[in-house]
Nucleic acid binder design. Sequence first.
DNA 1: GCAAAAGTGTTACCGGTACACCCATGT
DNA 2: ACATGGGTGTACCGGTAACACTTTTGC
Lengths: 232, 232
Amino acid sequence: MIDILDSNSYNHFSKHFVAVDCVIFGYEEDNLKLLLYPRGFEPSQGKWSLMGGFVRDNESMDQAARRVLNFTVGLDNIYLEQVRSFSDPERDPGGRVISMAYFALIRIDQYDKELVRNHGAHWWPITKLPPLIFDHANMIENALERLQRKASLELVGKELLPEMFTLTQLHNLYNAIFQKQFDAGNFRKKLSSLNLLDRLPEKDTSNSKRGAYYYKFKYKTSTDNIDRIVKL
Amino acid sequence: MIDILDSNSYNHFSKHFVAVDCVIFGYEEDNLKLLLYPRGFEPSQGKWSLMGGFVRDNESMDQAARRVLNFTVGLDNIYLEQVRSFSDPERDPGGRVISMAYFALIRIDQYDKELVRNHGAHWWPITKLPPLIFDHANMIENALERLQRKASLELVGKELLPEMFTLTQLHNLYNAIFQKQFDAGNFRKKLSSLNLLDRLPEKDTSNSKRGAYYYKFKYKTSTDNIDRIVKL
DNA sequence: GCAAAAGTGTTACCGGTACACCCATGT
DNA sequence: ACATGGGTGTACCGGTAACACTTTTGC
């Protein structure tokens, strides 16, 4: 680092508040949803916000994001990925805060509902988001792009769907993520060619008379297969 | 942010040193190269380092990276992209520094050679890098992946090659980026189908008797075409 | 029997791959 | 004439897209 060529102490450089903000994706009723929190004070009181928190001395940003998620939805072992940083000096009217956006995928049936309710949080369909504070809408936009990229390169669903699910559900999830309609027949064929799912004997009869077989993800075998799922 | 629900001042949270580190890619003599700087003092004296710097109060991280690049190679308007953050509390033995890795693409014939020389910097082929300080090798690994991803989705070269170049040069650039051999004939065909290049009347005769036509990138027209160039 | 969702089949086409081949020219 | 890098042509194969079709079952 150039700035340290003349010195072996960093003390004459500025320090900054560093935060993480989590874009929490869930999937429910054929909708991709985000978990948002109401801001309780001015400025921007009443606007909604991503869940976030400041990075502490003894933790990495990833650890901070995990801590926030655990505090927020009561879950460990959540799928989490960095999106990008947001660091405009004016982005937060309350002070100069550098923030790293993360996206998380959680099974909407699995989080701690009481904990979430206590925080006043609410699941919003990604197609109908309320006004958001600061640059949070921008963070969400970036996070969705990242989710789409991820979903195009590997099969997502394990992190968002229940343990057992139908191909129709998975199909609808992809429709929701990409906000377009994939051909149902071709999507099924693609899935079966990937050979990543196991069909169970049971059927889900809640949506049709005939019933749809339940599937679950195969126990992760061998190395990561980088399969193209759908085109971007 | 959860931590601020009880307060409208951030003052009781920790502040941190925040830095940027730049993975500077160049292309020369059929090699993808990185610009590295020698560390002049202990610990890790003699090891090589990415060029970096601390983020100041009045600038975003992107701006900090641009400032560092301008200071380093004397160029503005460099292609720059965030890679990801590195924030392990122990990553820098000199103090707790949160760093954002960036990658930059520059035309190796264009930078300020004297400025670079004055800093003691050196271009290293990406296949033969020296030992690096801290987590910089990791940053480079991540940056290369990002460059590969970028190069697979759009045609890179404008940022790395001279104004005029031959298809063979571009082919070699892709070979260098992906560290594999693409079929020459197919690569040319792909390029011509993309219709992104203009062939010039002049030829480069330095490498063959027959001579190879020079090409240049078409003046950027219409919207970004998201073309798949090569498979990952 | 009919509607509605689940699931299969058919076909055309496009793009990638491998590889053989031709071209231009300095020595 | 021939070696060398530049450049073109061809044949095959697999994935994708569009869409028609069959299956199952509750009503």
